[in-house]
Simulated scan of single mutants.
Amino acid sequence: MSRINKNVILALLTLTSSAFLLFQLYYYKHYLSAKRAVKKFIMLTSSQNVPVFLIDPLILELIDKSFEQVKNVSHGSTSECKFFCVPRDFTAFALQYHLWKNEEGWFRIAENMGFQCLKIESKDPRLDGIDSLSGTEIPLHYICKLASHAIHLVVFYERSGNYLWHGHLRLKGHTDKKFVPFRKLQFGRYPGAFDRYLFPKFTLCWTEFVDMKVHVPCETIEYIEANYGKTWKIPVKTWDWKRSPPNVRPNGVWPISEWDEVIQLY
C-alpha cells in the first residue's frame, strides 16, 4: 500500500511539474514574441519618422497603475519590460493618416524585417454625395504580424467638426480569417470618434523607455501643461477625459446625415 501511494505521489508530482514547465514555456514564448514585435515596430516607425502613438488599453492601464515605476525606470532595470512584454495577441497603436508620408516604403521595410502585413480598406464616408469620389476606398486598419504577436495600427482621419475618426474593421471575402484572432482586437468592432486635443507646436526628442528608444515631445512641460493645465502636479481625484483637460473643445452634436456611419448596432 505504501509503495502504491509513493508511485501515485511521484506520478502527481511529475504531472504537476510538466504542466508548470509547459506553462512557463508558453508564457516565455509570448513574452519574447511581444517584446520582439513591439521593439521592431518602434524601431521601424522611428527610423521612418512615422508618428504613431500607443492606444492599447491593457498597456495604458498597466502604465497608469505603475506610474511611479515609469518615472523611476532610469534608476532600475529596464530589461524587465514590465509593460510591453505582458502576454497578449496584439499591441494597438494609432496614427493620423495625413502625417504618413511614405506608406509603401514603410511596408517594404516592414516585410524585410519579417513582418507579415494586412491592409484593411473601406469606402471613405467623407466623400459620400460626391458622385465621382463616393466609391473611393481608404486604409482604415493595418495588422502586421511577427511570429505569434501582431501590431494593430488604427488609422485616424480628421472629420468635419474638428474631431478624429477611425473606421469599422470589415473583413472582405478574400481575407484570410485565420491571419490573426480578429475577435480579440480592441479596436475596429465599431467606428470611433474622438475629440481633438489642442497642443502647442512641439518638436521630438529621443528617450529610452522600457529598453527601447522612442520619440517624446522635447518641450515636455509645455506639452504636459497643455494636457493637464498649469496645476498638473496637484493630484485630481475626479477626472473626465471628455471635459477635464484644458485643451479639449466641444464639438457640438453629430450631423444627422452621419448617424448611419457613426451609430451602428451589431
Results as ranks from 00 to 15, higher is better:
L169K: 06
K237M: 12
I221R: 14
N102K: 11
K123F: 09
Q96N: 12
T78K: 11
W239M: 05
Y26N: 15
V248G: 04
D89P: 03
Y223C: 06
W106L: 15
V73C: 06
V210G: 00
D124M: 06
P57W: 02
C85S: 13
L185C: 11
S2Y: 03
E261M: 05
W206G: 09
W232V: 10
Y157G: 11
H166R: 07
H141R: 07
D176S: 14
I263L: 13
K35Y: 05
E121M: 12
I130V: 15
Y142P: 01
C205N: 07
D176N: 15
S79F: 08
P87D: 06
H75F: 15
L133W: 06
V180D: 00
V52F: 04
I130H: 10
F187P: 01
H168T: 11
N112H: 07
S148T: 15
V216S: 08
K119Q: 14
F187C: 04
L133Q: 07
F187W: 02
P125A: 11
K177G: 08
A94L: 07
L265H: 04
T207A: 14
Q69I: 10
F84G: 00
F202I: 10
K101W: 01
N72T: 10
S2C: 06
S257L: 04
K101F: 08
L10C: 09
I143F: 03
K39W: 02
F107N: 03
K35E: 01
A92E: 08
E258A: 11
F93T: 03
E261V: 15
R88H: 08
W254Y: 13
R183V: 02
S74G: 09
F67G: 14
R126F: 05
P191N: 07
Y163P: 02
C218R: 07
S132E: 14
S77A: 10
S17R: 04
R3L: 13
S160Y: 02
W206M: 09
F179L: 12
M113A: 14
I42S: 04
L25P: 01
L25M: 14
W206N: 15
K6F: 01
Q48R: 15
F67C: 05
N162F: 07
T91C: 13
F83L: 05
P245Q: 09
V154C: 10
A34H: 01
R243A: 12
L10M: 07
A34N: 15
